[in-house]
Design a protein around this nucleic acid. Structure first.
Lengths: 162, 162
DNA sequence: ATCGGAGTTCAATTTTTTTTGAACTCGATT
DNA sequence: AATCGAGTTCAAAAAAAATTGAACTCCGAT
């Protein structure tokens, strides 16, 4: 059963639902397909199961599984064939969001902060004092935004998780 | 001054910063450029100012302004030439996020909910009772996620705004 | 009522992102 | 030590998204 080559209606719909979901957060469709199928499968699935049931390439499946692993959205488990690796979905929204924040959001915030420093330095060289003050005021706003973004993250965790 | 054709260093850096920002939330670069330049300009800018200073096409500028207007991220104001429309940036993070949620997030949540109904209906036709129960359990989880996503939104508003 | 120019639209083009597939690695099997 | 096959890699192809630009609309001035 775990190895049949087509999706039933529930599976198809859940896979599509997950595609929509990952697109919202800017991840490619194949990620949603893989996660979706793992999510709605009773048995753990191997890479080749995903390839044949979703009709995607080995390359996509391999890369998709890799990303989902780094996000902590799936888990490796053992299955019937001892020399394959099988996967199942982690279902805690908390850990999905946590992984996403850690891997995709925090790096951006960090590089944003670095860029803000550069902007401030450039503004400091502005000679006309009114313009310089205007710039400093604007930069202050940007810095506040960055702080507020950071503030959201632990809050998210709290709502979803503990 | 408002009409010069190049960006100074502060302007360039702020524009780039905003590009990065909008990419995170999945909007095209041109949106970030336009918002960024309005954000860091002391004078309101017209469509043609944006075209010449950012080096983008009229089409892009027009479409970008339209989207930013629907998000409530910019405001129309009057400027020196009475027959042009000038714009300035709305700087309240609250209203930016509010507009984004209203225009880009809520519609997805709504269509997601509709799809969940379809999944539930499909699951109800599953004949094997263990599988059906498994599906129902999974669908329950998806429904809970959807609820939690909605829960976040007002919370966001509260942190950023009121 | 015609003209001029600001702004919009959308099909074609360009750019970016995603997916593919064939060559490869590596560990287990004979 | 040669083979098998699961999984990875990455350059090339395909698909998707953004941008352009030329034709258009609309309004105000002549």
């Amino acid at each position: 059963m775990a190895g049949r080559e087509t999706l039933n209606e529930v599976e198809r719909r859940v896979v599509e639902f997950c595609c929509d979901g990952v697109r919202i957060v800017g991840l490619p469709k194949s990620i949603g397909e893989i996660y979706g199928l793992l999510f709605i499968s009773r048995e753990p699935q191997s890479l080749d199961d995903l390839v044949s049931r979703l009709g995607i390439s080995k390359g996509s499946a391999s890369q998709g599984l890799k990303l989902l692993r780094t996000l902590g959205a799936i888990r490796q488990v053992s299955g019937e064939d001892s020399r394959r690796t099988y996967y199942e979905a982690d279902m805690q929204l908390k850990s999905l969001v946590g992984g996403f924040v850690r891997e995709q959001v925090r790096p951006h915030l960090a590089s944003g902060d670095a860029k803000l420093k550069g902007i401030a330095a450039a503004a400091a060289t502005e000679e006309e004092s009114e313009t310089r003050e205007f710039y400093e005021n604007r930069i202050f706003k940007l810095e506040r935004w960055s702080k507020q973004a950071r503030l959201i993250l632990p809050l998210l965790q709290r709502v979803l998780g503990g």
